[in-house]
């Protein structure tokens, strides 16, 4: 693996008026690495990912993707550059199929009878099947709306969309929060697969067990600043909690 990180922030700051939500934050994610982002509520985790994914413009500092500085004015631009954010409230249209969700907003078209433009449902279904297979999620009802699937399966669809569009960096905001325990395990296994595919993952969670199960490194924020960075193998739950609450 090259020594150049996949994604890097340098001295990133963001203030909302007088409120300093994030200050001087430098971190990086390598290819094939899962970095957990931990911290109490209001510690700046969400501000950080929004500054990376184009929702906010940073007040100062840089974001670098594969060593090149980037500046996104919208989440769409970030997505086109390969940074995909998967929100905890699942940005899926429940009434549409997996394929239609993967292609939502960029549907493929084909020609019927040689002239009539129609949605290419076959391509969408094929993409859904192959992408879901890549995530070890085997569906045989590709025309069913995603509301028929369980929470973990829907999370897989959201991840599958990112994978299909070849996202290099996946930012996952509390991907396990709304799920039962067995489903959480499945999402953790999905993250392992993303890692094995050489993608970078930023994983936000309150659940230390999940963090220790899946991450390579942990970055702890407290009141908008870096409180500490540890390799998972070199740290313990107690130490992380201490970093989070301070003292």
């Amino acid at each position: 693996m090259s020594d150049q990180p996949l994604l890097e922030t340098r001295h990133l700051s963001k203030n909302f008026g007088p409120v300093q939500a994030l200050s001087d934050l430098s971190m990086h994610v390598n290819a094939g690495e899962v970095v957990a982002l931990a911290g109490d509520n209001g510690a700046g985790k969400t501000t950080l990912i929004k500054a990376i994914s184009g929702v906010y413009r940073p007040s100062s500092g840089q974001v670098l993707l594969k060593g090149r500085e980037v500046s996104f004015s919208s989440p769409q631009e970030a997505r086109e550059s390969g940074i995909e954010t998967i929100y905890q409230d699942l940005a899926l249209a429940d009434n549409l199929s997996i394929g239609a969700n993967i292609f939502l907003g960029r549907e493929p078209m084909t020609k019927k009878f040689g002239f009539l433009p129609v949605l290419d449902r076959k391509k969408m279904a094929d993409a859904a099947r192959s992408t879901m297979a890549l995530l070890d999620f085997h569906v045989n009802r590709l025309d069913a709306p995603v509301s028929n699937f369980s929470g973990g399966q829907r999370q897989a669809v959201a991840i599958g969309r990112a994978v299909y569009w070849n996202a290099q960096v996946l930012i996952m905001d509390e991907p396990t929060a709304a799920l039962g325990v067995p489903e959480q395990r499945k999402v953790i296994s999905l993250i392992h697969q993303l890692k094995a595919q050489g993608r970078g993952v930023i994983f936000i969670s309150h659940n230390l067990q999940d963090i220790f199960a899946v991450s390579d490194r942990i970055v702890v924020l407290r009141r908008g600043v870096m409180a500490g960075e540890r390799r998972i193998s070199d740290t313990s739950h107690d130490e992380v909690v201490k970093l989070m609450v301070g003292g």
Binding site: P75, Q76, Y87, A91, A93, L104, G105, R106
Partner: peptide, 13 residues
């Protein structure tokens, strides 16, 4: 998509 989840539609661009 908009009828089911406007936010999802917006996020999808």
């Amino acid at each position: 998509a908009i009828g089911a989840n406007e936010q999802a539609a917006r996020r999808a661009g």
